[in-house]
Design a binder for these strands. Structure first.
Length: 545
RNA sequence: GCGCCCGUAGCUCAGCUGGAUAGAGCAACAGCCUUCUAAGCUGUGGGUCGGUGGUUCGAGUCCACCCGGGCGCACCA
């Protein structure tokens, strides 16, 4: 409902001689400042060389107060203009929600721009841990926000199936197999100690043809490599599916090692004079593009660094027609951003093509104490554990409710609580309560529609609720722009709080017919917004709990 | 040492891109069940926004320098 007013204010700014000024139209914090407030007059003061309060008066002369949009307006403080919306606007808002239904909150802001969101991208060497869960929730949330704001989104997972780590996991698996056969065989230095390889070793021995896995390791390695990559990928995908995340595309690191892809990229750099040889290695002049130091592309032993195929991969995203590539990375990779950015700048891509959403470390609190984790010993909380403890909905919500770039302590006890303290529960409960009204009345909410009388909404809570519902699309937009799903969870918690209060104080069923009908309409609209928010974040919106 | 992120109520965190008297949840205290889910609602107390300067009509928000914490600084991935 603020859209119409915003357009009107933009028009007036033009009339006064300052089109394209950027001003804020927002719901003011304090009571008594109206439903919406703008700083337009203060922003105009500079370019128009006039006093804010004088300009505010001129704005109000242009805006026909009392007709349509605004019931009342006043100038306050240093030059704010506060607006009280007309009841027509409130009715319109509710009708808009009913009409848009599960699309309410969507916008076309992105103009169909093609965005690639790459996340999780875990090594296929072991189970996903809680950190991957956070990346999965955040990546999927960002992707979803971009979809809601009119972008053409591809969710992508990059499989690191080419590096040394794969060799290590094969060696470790081999060690576990020898151990299973009764030999005293150590896990190599830098190998994987996790227990999952004990199981995998048994499966390998049982399932693979004996000839293909007979010693020596060098002979068995190809079969084991294929086996462990497949098993790990299958497990990761099954878990991610349970977690509610689907990918459109799986990129493969080994595919990026193809000789002519690499050659083509190196040629581009060479043509621009950006590579040089030193100490037997091939370097890229990333310092020309803001990096701290130049980076090695091809090591002196002839193999590639991780960076080179990764540049190929990002160039591939560009060639596939994406306007933007957003990578969700763990904090431990953040030193890597500058060199990737530099490499892509070296290829001549616009700076906004590549973007990194950072995900900081996750600690897990359970039974009141921190769960110790050591990745080297293979001893960490897996995403599977977490989902078993608290369920996928709670896990996702918790990861989404905090900004990604700050360390996060996952409180397992809180996440599994079925009480008001648990925000997931609290929000879902609000939805269930709205559904409950229709269940008790034995009415299909989809069939509650049509005009209602604003005067029949007798409590201030009624209209306050409508005003909050109207804010949803704005929150989705800002969350999408900032890649900040936590704005949506924050909104949902505020809304849920208000919904519980409304539910408590404003009876629906059994009120006079006009009021009952108006509140049923409002309950339906509320249920829609709650459901849309939850769905957007990849959560269920239960009808009863 | 250098770079990036962070520092807001006792605790966990928001703060709409520079706006009005800095908010919410826990925790503490005090109330509220003839109810469409008490699995809930309402009220109260609680702050030098890490510090010091600066930019301007106006700073939690922007700049500089300190203090304190996290992460990163490979011919690893």
């Amino acid at each position: 409902m603020s859209d119409a007013l915003r357009e009107e204010l933009e028009r007036i700014a033009g009339v006064l001689g300052a089109p394209n000024v950027s001003f804020v139209l927002e719901r003011p914090r304090g009571e008594g400042h109206g439903d919406l407030a703008t700083n337009l007059a203060m922003v105009l003061a500079g370019p128009l060389r006039s006093k804010p309060r004088t300009l505010a008066e001129r704005v109000l002369e242009e805006l026909k107060v009392g007709h349509g949009l605004v019931a009342r307006a006043e100038i306050a403080g240093p030059g704010f203009i506060n607006f009280w919306l007309s009841s027509d606007q409130l009715i319109k808002t509710v009708e808009e929600i009913l009409e848009a239904g599960s699309d309410f909150g969507r916008s076309t802001l992105g103009n169909g721009r093609r965005v690639n969101v790459e996340f999780v991208s875990a090594n296929p060497t072991g189970p996903l841990h809680v950190g991957h869960g956070r990346g999965a929730a955040l990546g999927d949330g960002i992707a979803s926000l971009l979809e809601w704001t009119g972008h053409d989104v591809t969710r992508e997972f990059y499989i690191n199936d080419a590096g040394v780590q794969v060799g290590r996991v094969v060696e470790s698996l081999w060690a576990r197999m020898r151990q299973a056969l009764g030999e005293d065989f150590p896990i190599p230095d830098g190998g994987y100690h996790g227990e999952y390889l004990i199981e995998a070793a048994e499966r390998a021995l049982a399932e693979l043809p004996a000839a293909s896995i007979a010693p020596p390791l060098e002979a068995a390695a190809p079969a084991l490599r294929e086996f462990i990559l497949r098993v790990q990928r299958e497990e990761q995908d099954a878990l991610l599916l349970d977690f509610g995340v689907r990918f459109d595309v799986y990129g493969s690191e080994s595919a990026m090692h193809e000789a002519d892809r690499i050659a083509r990229l190196l040629e581009q750099f060479r043509d621009r004079g950006l590579t040089f040889e030193a100490d037997g290695a091939l370097w890229l002049r990333t310092t020309d593009f803001g990096d701290d130091k130049d980076r090695v592309l091809r090591k002196s032993d002839g193999t590639y660094t991780y960076l080179l195929p990764d540049i190929v991969y990002h160039a591939d995203k560009h060639d596939r027609g994406f306007d933007r590539a957003i990578d969700v990375w763990g904090a431990d990779h953040h030193g890597y951003i500058a060199r990737m950015r530099a490499a892509l700048a070296a290829l001549g891509y616009p700076p906004e093509f590549f973007e990194v959403a950072m995900v900081q470390l996750v600690k897990v609190m359970k039974d009141g104490e921190e769960v110790r984790m050591s990745k080297r010993a293979g001893d960490f909380v897996t995403l599977r554990d977490l989902c078993d403890w608290v369920g996928a909905d709670a896990a996702r919500y918790f990861f989404l409710m905090r900004r990604g770039d700050t360390p996060f302590i996952f409180d397992v006890d809180l996440a599994r609580a079925r009480t008001e303290e648990n925000p997931v529960f609290y929000v879902q409960m609000a939805h269930a309560r709205m559904s409950g009204i229709f269940r008790v009345a034995d009415i299909d909410p989809e069939r509650v529609t049509g005009p209602f009388e604003i005067a029949a909404l007798t409590a201030p809570e009624d209209t306050d609720l409508i005003k909050t519902l109207a804010l949803f699309p704005g929150f989705v937009e800002r969350a999408a722009e900032g890649r900040e799903p936590h704005r949506v969870t924050g909104y949902l918690e505020d809304l849920a709080r208000q919904v519980h209060g409304w539910y408590h104080r404003c009876r629906v069923l059994g009120e006079p017919p006009a009021t009952e009908h108006a509140r049923l309409v409002l309950a339906r609209a509320t249920r829609t917004v709650l459901a849309n928010g939850l769905t957007l974040l990849g959560l269920t919106a239960p009808d009863r709990m």
